[in-house]
Design a protein around this nucleic acid. Structure first.
Lengths: 209, 209
DNA sequence: GAAAAAAATTGAACGCATTCATTTTTTCAG
DNA sequence: CTGAAAAAATGAATGCGTTCAATTTTTTTC
């Protein structure tokens, strides 16, 4: 029968998350007041806090959804990467970037990044960096695949380079979220330049190692 | 005569900054209450806000001091870099890392990074990224110097790689500040691994280009 | 050196996230 | 179906950064 209680709880959870998501989109995360979210979701402020630990918890729910989808899409790229190292890295990173504004605004991303850094002992931060690590792992997996097929030099440290590349794409993405006027194309263009610089170094020696 | 007003203002400014710095060190940035800082500095809360725009402004003053000193030390490394690319990069980055906890705690760094990301239109953020850019520029300058002297391949894109390396050392530093138990040696060790991976790619071709 | 003007100080008041004691609703035992 | 127990909902209270109107101190003017 799934109990009245269970059903109501699920409905309210959804209701709050929907209301919050809408408000974040309309007025921004910081400007969205808890009592406004509660009101839109037709619950009291106290009840809101029965469903979510705090305001950040709402954001985490949305970020998780976003990154999980992007990880899923990234898998396809890793499974069948384009011919050149440059194209392969570009494809994977573009996948990340292109998906980034589906559920979140730049301000929401900034807030998520800030919170994850500021309070490392928090479930928010743990989950955020878990997702980050999964993305970095995906970059490393791509590099390994390229090595296996001889597209890049086999003597390169794929794990270290995967981390380096992820740190870089992450930093560029941070820069993107910090400039409300920057279009996605600019981000992609900058990323392409860095990818070119790196893949230029990753070409295998002429006589295969 | 330097006017009574001027002198008092300077004294109070120092007094507040000293009190804040001490409290941040003792109880942490977040736990330090504005009224406690004001009390320790023997001013009212209202007066505090005549001297500093907000709590973050205090942090910015301390961060600026820190980074300016580190930039100064970095100059020496860039002016006379060690013999190998690996040693040179390691020396520069170690300089940054080794100085990092002189004025700031890990928590203060985290807060500074978080604030700089979260509120990009803020003087805090602008100044913080100005300092960041100066550090990245120093890495690029080092790479250029190494290229000029033939230590690393001349066909590498020094500007792009400087940014990549800075993004990476920054990400590793962020990780360091997020783990209260991580000693500096661990950070340095990880950085060494990444530097080795990168300089492995940067060796000039055997017949000079 | 007194009065007017300018600058700085002050603490009470405000906004907003979060907590908590109380009340209401739902479930369960008999 | 009833009453006790468990769970959830509620909104008033709290804590803390920041603002602001009123007061005090310093400087300037004559």
């Amino acid at each position: 029968m799934a109990g009245l209680r269970e059903r109501q709880k699920a409905k309210r959870n959804r209701s709050i998350l929907t209301a919050a998501s809408a408000l974040f989109g309309q007025v921004g995360y910081e400007a969205a007041r808890i009592d406004a979210i509660a009101e839109a979701a037709e619950v009291s402020v106290g009840t809101f806090y029965n469903y979510f630990e705090n305001k950040a918890d709402l954001l985490l729910a949305i970020v998780s959804m976003e990154v999980e989808e992007v990880l899923h899409q990234g898998e396809s790229v890793v499974a069948a990467p384009p011919a050149t190292a440059e194209a392969a890295l570009f494809a994977l990173i573009s996948t990340y970037y292109d998906h980034s504004l589906v559920y979140l605004t730049k301000e929401m991303w900034r807030t998520a990044m800030a919170l994850s850094i500021q309070h490392p002992e928090t479930p928010f931060s743990r989950r955020y960096f878990e997702l980050d690590a999964a993305l970095a792992e995906q970059v490393t997996a791509l590099l390994r695949g390229l090595q296996a097929r001889g597209t890049i030099r086999r003597d390169a440290d794929a794990a270290a380079l995967g981390e380096v590349i992820f740190a870089d794409l992450n930093a560029m993405f941070t820069g993107f979220t910090m400039d409300e006027t920057m279009p996605l194309a600019t981000l992609t263009g900058r990323m392409a330049a860095h990818v070119a610089a790196l893949t230029g170094l990753l070409a295998p020696p002429l006589r295969t190692v």
